[in-house]
Computed example of a mutant assay.
Amino acid sequence: MPLLLLDLDNTLIDRDAAFRDAAAAFLSAHGLPDTDLPWVTTVDAGGYTPRHEVAAALTDHYGSAVPPIAVRTLLDTGAADRVVLAPATREALDRARMGGWTCVIVTNGRTVQQEAKIRHTGLDRLVQGWAVSEAVGHKKPEPEIFYAAAATGGLPLPGAWVIGDSPHADIAGADALGLPSVWVANGRAWAQDSYRPTHIAADITSAIHHVISTPNRSE
């Protein structure tokens, strides 16, 4: 049974859109200018800025205008409460499973937050498991988290495909392990010279379609 390892944020779900919505609600709730939204999202950096650094930046910027619990709520549950799973993504995962693929999510982040997204969107009913960096003790692109994800699916890692939107975390990680990969471009151009994905897809649905249509393709 073939193994498909899938990134979560901005691959299976649009995490950035959910965070923008949460940040906009945060600003509105505290009477802050909506023109601050680009600054908040820049500080967040697509979730890559450590949570404590984002919290410190927001606290320093807004001071007593925003209670600390509001900042914690935004960072802990803001995006998780708003993420959605597109019907086309759900259908693509269903096709993969019906085709015999074992689908496992491999994601960086905090366990509670990432599992909340997985369960909120119903992904827990569409995949065979997940590996979260906080729980594993290693984060992408480290090989240990990919091995942990394969073990969660009950399959060996060699021969697995990796799908993700991050050149560094997903594609470099797959490349180091000799695994075929699909980069989800999300409107971007590939800019790395030292490694490349096996395939570049416009979005997650076309990425899954490519993999399940060419399961033995290696280049």
Rank of each mutant, 00 (worst) to 15 (best):
G129E: 02
K140I: 06
H210C: 09
H120A: 13
M98Y: 13
S206Q: 11
I118Y: 02
G109R: 02
K117W: 06
R217G: 10
S166P: 07
N186R: 15
T198H: 03
S181M: 03
P197T: 08
N108R: 03
A202R: 15
A201C: 09
D165S: 12
H209T: 13
N186H: 15
A160E: 05
T111W: 06
V182H: 06
D165N: 13
K117Y: 04
G187T: 08
R110Y: 14
R97D: 09
S181Q: 09
H210S: 09
N216S: 15
P158Q: 12
Q114D: 11
Q113G: 10
L157K: 08
G122F: 06
T111L: 12
A131E: 02
G173N: 09
A150F: 05
C103P: 06
A202L: 11
G100C: 09
A172K: 15
A131L: 02
S166V: 04
H199W: 13
L155C: 13
A207K: 02
A150Y: 01
S133Q: 08
T102R: 03
L126H: 10
P143C: 11
P197W: 05
V127R: 00
R188K: 12
T198Q: 07
H120W: 06
H199E: 07
W183I: 04
T198Y: 06
T102P: 00
Q128D: 15
A169Q: 14
T198V: 10
I212L: 01
T102A: 00
A169L: 00
A150W: 00
T102I: 09
A176L: 14
Y195A: 08
W101A: 00
C103Y: 02
D175C: 12
H138K: 03
G129T: 00
Q192P: 10
Q192H: 15
T121R: 02
K117N: 09
H120R: 13
V104P: 01
I118H: 02
S133D: 00
S206M: 03
S133C: 01
R97Q: 11
G129W: 03
G122M: 06
A151L: 05
V112R: 15
A169W: 05
P158S: 13
P167W: 01
D203W: 07
V104M: 00
T198L: 06
V127I: 09
P215S: 12
G164H: 06
G100H: 01
G154I: 00
A160K: 03
S133M: 01
D124G: 13
G154M: 01
A189M: 11
Q128K: 04
